[in-house]
């Protein structure tokens, strides 16, 4: 299962790789990291998108933000699952994300145990 993580912070890659190292080792999950929304869209359009099942996206990013990305993704790739992961737990962002069709809304600091459960449950 291929999961794309969109976040402008590079450290997030190391965190995810370490947190899911068992699952990665076991070949259960594959991560594709993108540092911006544009890069994510570019990847999805040019590569074989079918292999990506889930996108985890930050909201607050330079350039296109996560909510915008969410809107575009849900238009172009309606089958993709999108979880928003953000430090902004406020009502407005939450409502917008739900309105755009986000499949989950996870606030930082991320509780990886529950995230793992959610991802596994997708299958």
């Amino acid at each position: 299962m291929k999961v794309m993580v969109v976040d402008d912070e590079e450290d997030i890659q190391s965190l995810f790789k370490q947190k899911f190292r068992k699952e990665i080792k076991a070949g259960q999950i594959q991560f594709q990291f993108c540092l911006s929304a544009e890069a994510a869209l570019n990847y999805l359009e040019n590569d074989d998108e079918a292999s990506i099942v889930l996108i985890l996206s930050d909201i607050n990013m330079p350039g296109m933000n996560g909510l915008e990305l969410l809107r575009i993704l849900k238009e172009k790739f309606p089958d993709l699952k999108v979880f928003m992961i953000t430090a902004y737990g406020d009502e407005k962002n939450y409502q917008t994300a739900i309105a755009y069709g986000a499949d989950d809304y996870i606030t930082k600091p991320v509780n990886f145990d529950s995230l793992k459960n959610k991802i596994i449950n997708l299958e």
Partner: peptide
Amino acid sequence: AGIAHEIRNPLNFVNNFSEL
């Protein structure tokens, strides 16, 4: 709120990386 949210991002790393 602005500060708090921004603090939460590094906290995210601090907590998770320390746990990890």
